[in-house]
Design a protein around this nucleic acid. Structure first.
Length: 213
DNA sequence: ATCCCGAGGG
DNA sequence: CCCTCTGGAT
């Protein structure tokens, strides 16, 4: 497995990423905690662009659990059927809304345990909401961060849990809050899955990935 | 380990 | 055609 990069390399990498984008934002459209939670749940194995296209017409008429329930599973499917895994997602979102109302007073809970108890919400989705909305030090490991972390040596690990630990243990405190989006954006646009764009990569000097050409 | 599952890119 | 996309439940 790729070795863990040392402190100077990690510091240099995130300094460079911060230089390019001081305040990295998520790219999932949302208007409140509820629509953020739903958008993240819908984004599983789907592009944010595809999720935004579907939620553009959905969220204006269903930005609360009550309104989403009124839409119903079939009504929801009409909005999200262009997104992969839409049947499971529709079923989960409806059940999630009912549980938010029954157990959490219609509000999105701010603890990981409560979030993970919601249908269709796993550790990754919970960590995104904790990080983006509640500004807590939670590190979500998605496909991009897993790939980038292991290729580069920023946060290598055999599974998501190991990568999450590598982030917490090796990324300096000053970068922890924004590390998630810096790595997402870099993985999405530069260190892409198929053919990483090493030629224009701003952190190439410290990366351990050997381009096989 | 397997299933879910459409859109977009190469 | 094949692979990938901010995964989760069984």
């Amino acid at each position: 497995m790729t070795p863990q990069l040392d402190y100077p390399a990690i510091h240099a990498i995130f300094s460079r990423l911060r230089e390019a984008e001081a305040e990295p934002q998520g790219e999932l459209d949302h208007t409140n905690a509820f629509t953020l939670l739903v958008a993240v749940a819908l984004s599983a194995q789907a592009t944010d662009k595809g999720v935004n296209r579907a939620t553009r017409d959905l969220f204006p008429i269903a930005d609360t659990p009550e309104k989403m329930l009124a839409l119903g599973e079939e009504g929801l499917i009409e909005h999200i059927k262009t997104i992969g895994l839409f049947r499971n997602k529709a079923k989960n979102v409806i059940k999630l809304c009912q549980r938010l109302i029954d157990v959490y007073g219609g509000e999105v809970p701010s603890s990981r345990a409560a979030l993970v108890s919601l249908p269709g919400v796993g550790r990754k989705t919970a960590n995104v909401v904790l990080n983006m909305w509640f500004r807590l030090p939670a590190q979500a490991v998605d496909t991009h961060i897993f790939r980038l972390g292991n290729r580069s040596g920023i946060c290598p690990g055999k599974d998501e849990a190991a990568v999450e630990r590598a982030i917490e243990d090796n990324i300096p405190a000053e970068f922890q809050q924004h590390a998630h989006h810096w790595m997402i954006l870099h993985g999405r646009y530069i260190c892409v899955a198929r053919k990483p764009k090493c030629g224009i990569c701003p952190i190439r000097d410290w990366c351990l990935y050997e381009e096989k050409t």
